[in-house]
Design a protein around this nucleic acid. Structure first.
Lengths: 349, 349
DNA sequence: ATGAAAGCGCTAACAA
DNA sequence: TTGTTAGCGCTTTCAT
């Protein structure tokens, strides 16, 4: 179909190596450069990245594995990461595994077959879904949001514990002491951390710490709604609630509306993650926000450095005990957007 | 790194062709089949899709170009499409062009270089962003959501006009006659269609049709908010409003809350697209919904048929005047989710 | 059913 | 700097 380097060589009377050198930024005599450029234009030549990939054993493609693409938190990260990667010449193959461990394993396998150069993963399960294959092949992995003990790779995390602690502290400073929490699944890394932050703040402030004040919502809308109802029914004296992810925030708000609970008069609320949703709620919700753009940026750049710097970074002090390159764990700070969903009960503030 | 077909050949004492035949589902003597399978297992052989792609000139990869990935409507479509494509062995390369025509052109170019087999596009601009290259190369394109006159490809559309008309008719049947609309950008296909539907319904029902009843919100949250304010201030007698996409629905709700407008007592509202948001609003919003899964399914399947059926479908009655394969345009029906945001003013219902 | 060999479009080592 | 040549791992004739 399209013209090949051979065609350019023939057309210009030059050798293949010269064309290749030109295409890869090597030195070519001015005169020849012009000839080549003319030929390229006339023949509509475009490098065949597939052939190049076969030869170099690098596809310039990154695999991304995420739990849910139609989840604003993940989608924002992907958007940004894809943008950065593409600007560096990397294509991204995205696989949505619908929060299913088995699908995650399949996706990793699929991407391995496709010979992607590296992986960005927000792991769903706690077990190795085939990541070791990549590690063994010397292909870098960056994990986002969750950390896995037995996989040696870079991690970009968020200070979930601190975020939850801060949210609860705000409620305490506003005078609340019976504060509920809608927690995520017990087996999810971020959920555990957020719950730990809540518990720490409750403890440190001598706030009420009944078991009944924590309801589990499983990070889903329906779960958030059910948890909200449960909290409300079991804790007549609860004056505030902290909801620990976006989906559950949506679900809780649905339930709050259905139950006719007045926010913040009857119940103060701090939610999670989605500024737009928070603003569109009545009243505007106070929420913890995650630095999605920053996460994506760190992930993409970490990966690119590993990929491009392979030759340079092999000196001794960049290696760890196993002789592998050192891995980095970055923990980013969360933000907070003030709304009108927290009632001030006293003047401690 | 990994084992190649050659290794399998050596190991089994068979020829390359036999291995290839086995891998591609050809006939292989039982005895040899077993030998091959053993060797594959022992050597951890995995087909190199890159090499295969170079040889066959098919990468088994589909490019997807969308305006915004962090837009729930598009994200839902992508999720579903990616799933279907992957189950057929196709990888997807997603490019988010941030609703920018120039970025869209770059993305199409990028994907062309990557030699993707086909394209799924939700076009941002009105001009050909390099699609002709694909058409010329015989690579199929499926357009979603918007149609472009000068690009010959399959289209999966939604009955936007009908959806808007239906929404307004519902308001009319509830007794409203001064109905506002928050419209999208003048140059966007779907926006024009939705506006046409509104206008048709207004006309057919002899409802008020002042120019001032249509405000333009540009499909953004901020735009929706501004448009809502404008409508409210300029139309003291307006009793209902139809908002024609999701982002503007969010923006309008923000503004409605800020202005303290009571829904549906003071203003009836019909929004667009996101069921979760609609349910989490107070009161629950009535909205037009789009069949995202169906759209994705139609798009993915249309593309796969074109791709796999290339040899079979070349008979005469599948060709159009240009000698190209016929193109299909599918128009899907929208749905409607009833909330509590429409006040019934009479008993026409 | 199987083997031998050519070649997809590119890069890279070596020679000139 | 430039040309020659040998593969990268696979599919695909063409024989056998």
């Amino acid at each position: 179909m399209g013209a090949t380097m051979k065609d350019i060589a023939k057309r210009t009377g030059l050798g293949l190596a010269t064309i290749s050198s030109y295409l890869n930024g090597g030195n070519v005599r001015e005169k020849n450069r012009i000839k080549i450029e003319e030929a390229i234009k006339e023949l509509h030549f475009e490098v065949n990245e597939v052939a190049r990939g076969l030869k170099t054993n690098r596809t310039k493609t990154i695999g991304i594995v995420i739990p849910e693409l139609n989840n604003i938190f993940f989608a924002e990260i992907i958007t940004e990461a894809e943008d950065i990667l593409r600007s560096h010449g990397y294509a991204t193959m995205i696989c949505d595994c619908r929060s299913d461990t088995e699908r995650e394993r399949e996706a990793v396998e699929f991407l391995y077959h496709r010979r992607v150069d590296g992986l960005i993963v927000m792991p769903t399960g706690t077990s190795d879904s085939g990541f070791h294959k990549f590690i063994r092949a010397g292909k870098p992995i960056v994990m986002i949001d969750r950390k896995m003990k037995d996989v040696c790779c870079d991690c970009i995390l968020v200070d979930n514990e601190g975020a939850a602690e801060d949210a609860v502290n705000r409620l305490v400073r506003a005078g609340h002491s019976r504060i509920g929490m809608i927690a995520g699944p017990e087996d999810v890394y971020t959920a555990k951390e957020r719950q730990r932050g809540y518990e720490k703040a409750v403890r440190d402030n001598n706030a009420a710490s009944d078991e009944g004040l924590v309801a589990r919502g499983n990070y889903t809308i329906a779960g958030g709604a059910a948890a909200m109802r449960q909290l409300w029914e079991n804790n007549p004296d609860m004056t505030a609630v902290f909801i620990s992810n976006y989906e559950m925030t949506v679900g809780a708000m649905m339930e709050i509306n259905d139950l006719g609970i007045r926010v913040p008069d009857e119940l103060s609320v701090i939610g999670f993650d989605n500024v737009d949703f928070a603003k569109a709620s009545a009243p505007r919700l106070s929420i913890v926000t995650q630095p999605t753009a920053k996460i994506a940026q760190e992930a993409a750049e970490t990966l690119i450095i590993k990929l491009e710097g392979k030759d340079r970074t092999m000196d001794v002090d960049h290696q760890d005990v196993d002789g592998e390159r050192t891995t980095v764990t970055v923990t980013l700070k969360t933000g907070f957007v003030e709304g009108r969903s927290v009632r001030v009960l006293n003047n401690k503030v």
